[in-house]
């Protein structure tokens, strides 16, 4: 049984932020919204190119890491690009 919603509600629902690409919303589990003592850097506001490049370097092991190497290996080039663009803009 699927309950369908009136058109006005659909407009309301779609007015929210652009849907996050797969995996992107997990970043805020560790990366704070603003700079914080001891924490990894905030992502919002950084250039998407820099975030994507960092992810690529974590994945290849070129950039030293504690957990980001293990996480970056789970994403393709396309996924990394989409995540970088989204988190760079996210609030």
């Amino acid at each position: 049984m699927r309950r369908l919603l009136p058109a006005a509600v659909l407009v309301l629902l779609s007015a929210g932020a652009a849907a996050a690409p797969p995996g992107a919303e997990a970043c805020s589990g560790c990366h704070p919204a603003t700079r914080a003592e001891g924490a990894p850097p905030p992502l919002a506001g950084q250039p998407a190119d820099d975030i994507a490049a960092a992810m690529q370097d974590f994945r290849t092991g070129q950039r030293p890491a504690t957990v980001m190497d293990r996480i970056a290996k789970g994403f393709t080039d396309e996924e990394i690009r989409a995540i970088a663009v989204w988190v760079a803009r996210a609030q």
């Binding site: 805020s28 560790c30 001891g38 957990v67």
Partner: peptide
């Protein structure tokens, strides 16, 4: 990082 993670996630 463990402590920072706890502060970040509980804050979020």
């Amino acid at each position: 990082y463990a402590e920072a993670w706890f502060r970040t996630i509980t804050g979020a």
